[in-house]
């Protein structure tokens, strides 16, 4: 993957003599895997949500992640140049993500995607491929080709000892963030009126439309939410990585794998698949570094060979 990829950092073990190396290794793999899975889930669940509602597999989703990362890096740089309370930096990152999502989401959906809704779903993939090309260069034009670093928020919370290993607390914050995001998303979809409408559209678009659901509004909302999740993922991984051209590709390829493994359009599937991919990558990095590049696709090919529709999807018979 590209050099700016948000891969795992080496956990620094502080080896107490009595802990066997084997246990330590497993713990490292699991915790690193969880950290990796956390941001991956946030990004991928946005991708799967957009697919579920709009039937679009958005290749430009990785660019939205990158835009989130760049925006957060700029915002963090600006904020820490001043003298505000350091912890408020997280709020600044969140605020920046929200602003960008609200600005870009409706623009892309109403301005471009809408024009292609009557076309085949594969054509829509190509449209988002075109968007990917456009956004890739747009990002370069705005932020240039040099890497950005937003390290301040990363060290802010200090380190935490876990199972005899030392971890940067920020990484564990990421896990918490993904759990909260997933939880809120689940509650929002299953426990609110608006969420139930979204679920209804995912389940049967034509029927929902016939029942008087305002599909247009659902589309704008769902797409913007999807953009927000990508941007959020980007914003909160920005402090861990060097933000530079190419990160969008790494991320879209990984989230693709997650979404396809989990089953297109399935929120639960995205969670399980993110864990699977996170753990697989982490295991590869620690046990067989040369496999890191393709282990994800190997898992994906394996899952698809066994369950062609992904883990959480069932094929339906076409009505004739």
């Amino acid at each position: 993957m590209g050099e700016g990829a948000p891969g795992q950092r080496d956990a620094r073990p502080s080896p107490p003599e009595q802990t066997s190396r084997r246990v330590e290794l497993v713990a490292t793999i699991v915790i690193d895997g969880l950290i990796d899975a956390s941001w991956l889930f946030i990004v991928a669940v946005g991708l799967t949500l957009v697919f579920g509602v709009l039937n679009i597999l958005n290749i430009a989703h990785g660019n939205l992640y990158a835009i989130g990362a760049y925006t957060a890096a700029s915002a963090v740089g600006w904020y820490y140049a001043g003298s505000g309370p350091p912890l408020l930096g997280y709020v600044v990152m969140l605020g920046a993500a929200l602003l960008v999502a609200v600005a870009i989401g409706p623009l892309l959906e109403r301005g471009i995607l809408r024009l292609f809704y009557r076309r085949d779903e594969i054509v829509l993939v190509l449209v988002t491929y075109a968007l990917f090309l456009v956004l890739e260069d747009a990002t370069k034009l705005i932020w240039g080709a040099n890497p950005y670093y937003a390290y301040e928020p990363y060290g802010l919370l200090g380190n935490v000892k876990l199972l005899g290993l030392t971890y940067v607390a920020y990484d564990l914050l990421l896990i918490a963030l993904s759990v909260v995001t997933g939880g809120l998303l689940w509650l929002g979809l299953n426990r609110t009126a608006a969420g139930k409408v979204v679920l209804a559209v995912i389940h049967d678009r034509e029927m929902s439309s016939a029942m008087g659901v305002n599909v247009t509004r659902v589309f704008v909302l769902a797409f913007t939410l999807g953009v927000f999740l990508a941007v959020l993922g980007g914003a909160f991984t920005a402090p861990k990585i060097s933000v530079q051209p190419g990160i969008s590709i790494t991320v879209i390829l990984l989230s693709f794998a997650v979404v396809v493994i989990g089953g297109l359009g399935s929120v639960e599937g995205a969670a399980i698949a993110a864990l699977l991919v996170g753990l697989a990558r982490s295991a590869a990095i620690h046990l067989m570094p040369s496999a890191e590049l393709f282990i994800v696709y190997l898992v994906m090919a394996g899952v698809l060979a066994l369950r062609p529709e992904g883990l959480f999807q069932r094929a339906a018979l076409r009505k004739i």
Binding site: V127, F132, L133, V134, D137, K140, A145
Partner: peptide
């Protein structure tokens, strides 16, 4: 730095 963008726009227009 902007030729991919041109390609992307061109592709959109073709589709």
């Amino acid at each position: 730095n902007s030729w991919q963008m041109a390609l992307g726009i061109f592709l959109l227009l073709v589709i």
